[in-house]
Design a binder for these strands. Structure first.
Lengths: 205, 205
DNA sequence: TATAATATGTTACAAAGATCACAAAAATAA
DNA sequence: TTATTTTTGTGATCTTTGTAACATATTATA
């Protein structure tokens, strides 16, 4: 089970490869991609090999073909729909973010308890939480973003999982308690900065 | 060198411990903290042991004392100042975020090329990039957040490192090229969602 | 056709990180 | 005082992840 990190890198490779197509580059080598994504060439080859992606000795890999193969692994041939709960600062930043299309992802609906935020003011419709079960079912959603305050995050998490959500990207600074069949990825912006700060403090010593 | 992960956890423990003080809890056990932060009790003890933090057999750890000890490790006794470059969606979300105080961190200045965003409209003063060297020096800043578009991220990174910044939290979807004395932590919100999506797709199969 | 050059693919090795198992200490109860 | 219970601290083990080394394939060239 050598998974998470490898997938993370595949995603990076893919983004990079898309840039190459835009530049008209058709063929690449493991070390090209390695340099661009900050890993070692061996790692690139091993990642590909892991998923049965083969290159041509001496000629490297074909960019378009490689993208297709990674797309297949990442199920990128259909748009992946996501919902967002919480239209605070982070929620708003996310719905304005334009990088999703390039990656075949789409936030299809947002939710907030505050009636003032509901409606069609934003790029994406914002519903009250009561509508969540219905929309998750209708749109067949598996993944959600939690961008609500700490105090309500667990409740939202419960609501999501009860309605069939299986993956959660959590911005609230709490460890959500849930079944281990649900995959949760916590993002702690403060935490990252604190860690950074620790190391930059130390290197001078 | 058993570092990064351990530090990340210490930061989590600390936040948790601060909650405990607010609830009036004075003494805790490794498994209490473990449950709250989603790790194993052994891990908690080992993390502490790593930094010479000792508990009392049978009585666990004293919350206040523990916070003090973690504070010392993380240099939390002075406010850690950060700057932010890029006042787009993410930048704005960050300056409105209220979790920094609790963690003794502060975004002291932001920078943007767009004159419309400069000035004192926001909670934090926004300067043109030309002012960056001066402010970094004056405020003695070591860490910065890059929240500019992909196209200018590398330039901003160069500017930052030339002026003595040693830690960067990067939101732009590019691998920044720089000296290996500079610590860079990349946050790819899309990437995280894509990875999540991969796994939630798979578990049903 | 033989040789040299260049990339891949895989196996072996190393390092980092997490888990397990258990001894030792402290408190409580008998 | 002795036995029992509870919780810490750590050495050993296992798992995951990354690095290095090298054999193999392909192309180009003489």
């Amino acid at each position: 089970m050598l998974i998470y990190k490898t997938i993370t890198r595949l995603i990076q490779y893919r983004l990079c490869l898309i840039h190459y197509t835009e530049l008209g580059i058709e063929q690449i080598f493991s070390y090209t991609l390695a340099k661009e994504t900050g890993v070692s060439p061996e790692q690139v080859r091993k990642d590909f090999s892991q998923f049965g992606i083969r290159g041509n000795k001496k000629a490297g890999y074909n960019v378009l073909q490689l993208i297709e193969q990674i797309n297949a692994i990442l199920s990128k041939n259909t748009v992946q729909k996501i919902i967002l709960v919480g239209m605070g600062n982070i929620g708003k930043a996310l719905i304005h973010y334009k990088g999703f299309e390039n990656r075949n992802m789409q936030i299809v609906a947002a939710f907030d308890i505050d009636p003032a935020k509901q409606g069609r003011k934003y790029r994406i419709p914002v519903y009250p939480l009561q509508k969540l079960p219905q929309i998750v079912r209708r749109e067949d959603i598996s993944n959600a973003i939690i961008a609500v305050p700490e105090s309500t995050a667990q409740q939202v998490c419960d609501l999501l999982t009860e309605n069939g959500i299986r993956g959660i990207l959590n911005f609230a600074p709490v460890i959500l308690k849930t079944s281990d069949r649900i995959m949760i990825k916590n993002i702690s912006l403060c935490g990252e900065l604190e860690a950074l700060s620790y190391f930059t403090q130390r290197t001078t010593v």
